[in-house]
Amino acid sequence: MLSLSPSTTLPLAAGIGLRAPHHAQVLAGRPAVAWWEVHSENFFTAGGAPLAFLQAIREAYPVSLHGVGLSLGAVDMLFEAHLEKLAALVERIQPAAVSEHLCWSSAGAQHFNDLLPLPYTEAAIQQASARISRVQDRLQRQILVENVSSYLTFADSTMCEWDFLVAVAARSGCGILLDINNIYVSASNHGFAAKTYIDAIPAALVGEMHLAGFDHCDDFLIDTHGQPVHAPVWDLYAYALERLGPKPTLIEWDADIPSLAVLQGEAAKADRQLQRVEAGHVRAA
């Protein structure tokens, strides 16, 4: 499965996370943005304004559905009902990409509505891979799975995070959504070299990258998505593009959301890096 390229039809350009404060402006003005990513769960309705909006956006732009609630690494029973709602949305929107997080969010019958890290163990690889396979079977398409940031590590872990991520992708046949900010945050919190993480990822597995801002909390970093992309994350992004080749890249901003113009400025920065690397790859070829 490692030789398969991730099956997204996202353009090789920077997209923007589309959030409620910008819905009306985007619908009315159709701004120049290469593609949009939305949180799938916000469109899990049977009808009404949310779905009508997303269908209108889908007619004008490529759309990526990015889930936050499937809880791929959990063992609870909430998963199938959530998957059915996602399947209905995918059927309706026919997105360019479908992605979720490599994390857990629920236990027993309770959901925690947050992206919680897994221990990096064989048991967790098995659990997550089985669920990802189930999702891909149900949706009849490959999904991308994103590395989450973490503030804690588990005594149980028997491998490093990047080996865990690659093993899950290899076992389930999913692609990787590589979040560069999350790598930076986790590297800083746990004291590993971010470039080592990127070096370990097979380029052919990566279907998309994410960029966002973080915040400081005491002596560690939190991926709040409430800031511009930080300078060292841009540097790490440049390294990832050199190493992995150009990939569709998303600007994410979820707290203290600025004007669309600010987000477009961040996307333009990513586009310049993408174009530089693309030109280099063409020359190299």
């Binding site: 925690f112 947050d114 503030y151 804690l152 590590t153 588990f154 149980d156 560690f220």
Partner: peptide, 23 residues
């Protein structure tokens, strides 16, 4: 459960708890 010393783990786990409660 955590690799971190308890004092560190308590502060960092509190960040998760704040996220969850805040959501």
């Amino acid at each position: 459960l955590f690799s971190e010393p308890q004092a560190v783990a308590e502060r960092r786990f509190a960040a998760y708890r704040r996220n969850v409660t805040g959501n």
